[in-house]
């Protein structure tokens, strides 16, 4: 009897722990959604459950500032960065994973160390570079600076993945005299897509969420990306913050990401572990 009671107690404790974890993880986003549907005085009462439902915040966030532009900017930069990172990453990782040459290990460590650079440590040099190229306040300037963030781990994760593929895969093609470019396109690309989806998604998230470069290298409201736009939404004074608008904007930019992450959760986990744990 005593053992049985003990067992139930342990089970209850376990489920309580699970409940606390889920609540802590989900509640802030739930509360953001709830707030985004509230207007007027409802906004300034603390509600735990939905009390009112209005889409006004979702409409007004597009009116007060060029939020549509901001979303477009973020999408454009993120896709550009993903495409460039994958293109450069796949070819480079083929060389790093499948061809033996002197200095390969050193090269990999150097590439990995770039991903550890603090962004602030390159800020003034990057500013000068982007201004020098005439790309200040432009999406192309941002895309260039983001390559520093996405390219190293794209190369790293794709190399880790490609190294694990069997040698026989390319042998026949090489013996037939196929050029390395053909080998990549015909032999590796068809089996690489899971790894490319993973790294592409991680690069997309990194570019979509980036803040410091976007804040520093853009100037006008219509050139801002979404995180900067959200960070800069403010009211006439500190006590007139349009919290409803801020939460609506937050929900708009977060929902697609959450959907993506939940769909690809297994791939993301394997990508993160390949990038971090294998590192």
């Amino acid at each position: 009897m005593n053992a049985k009671a003990w067992k139930y107690l342990r089970k209850a404790a376990f489920w309580l722990l699970v409940a606390v974890i889920v609540l802590f993880a989900v509640f802030p986003f739930y509360y953001a959604i709830l707030t985004s549907f509230e207007t007027g005085s409802a906004l300034f009462e603390v509600n735990y459950l939905p009390e009112s439902f209005s889409l006004i915040n979702y409409i007004s966030v597009f009116k007060g500032q060029p939020f549509g532009h901001n979303i477009f900017n973020s999408i454009f930069v993120s896709f550009l960065v993903v495409a460039l990172s994958l293109l450069l990453g796949v070819t480079a990782s083929y060389a790093l994973a499948r061809v033996k040459f002197a200095g390969r290990g050193l090269l990999l460590i150097t590439i990995l160390s770039v991903s550890m650079f603090p962004q602030v440590a390159v800020l003034s040099g990057m500013f000068e570079l982007i201004r020098g190229l005439g790309l200040y306040n432009s999406m192309f300037g941002l895309a260039i600076s983001y390559m520093m963030l996405t390219l190293p781990f794209t190369v790293w994760v794709l190399t880790a993945f490609m190294r694990d593929l069997p040698r026989e895969l390319e042998e026949a093609a090489v013996m037939d005299g196929a050029t390395p470019w053909t080998v990549i396109r015909r032999v590796f690309l068809p089996v690489m897509w899971p790894a490319m989806v993973t790294t592409g998604l991680l690069a997309f998230i990194a570019a979509w969420n980036e803040f410091l470069f976007a804040l520093t290298f853009t100037l006008t409201d219509d050139k801002r990306t979404v995180p900067v736009a959200i960070a800069l939404i403010s009211g006439a004074s500190q006590h007139e913050m349009p919290w409803g608008n801020i939460m609506a904007a937050s929900v708009i930019v977060t929902l697609p990401l959450i959907v993506l992450v939940l769909i690809f959760q297994r791939r993301i986990v394997s990508g993160l572990t390949a990038g971090a744990v294998k590192g």
């Binding site: 974890i21 889920v22 969420n209 995180p227 919290w243 977060t254």
Partner: peptide
């Protein structure tokens, strides 16, 4: 549960800072 745990990770840092800013508001 694993999906729920992933949600904070998927939320952009700026958005999570703003969400908590609101939750930690001194008056409301």
């Amino acid at each position: 549960v694993r999906a729920a745990v992933l949600i904070p990770w998927a939320i952009p840092t700026i958005v999570s800072a703003r969400m908590w800013n609101w939750m930690l508001h001194d008056q409301f």
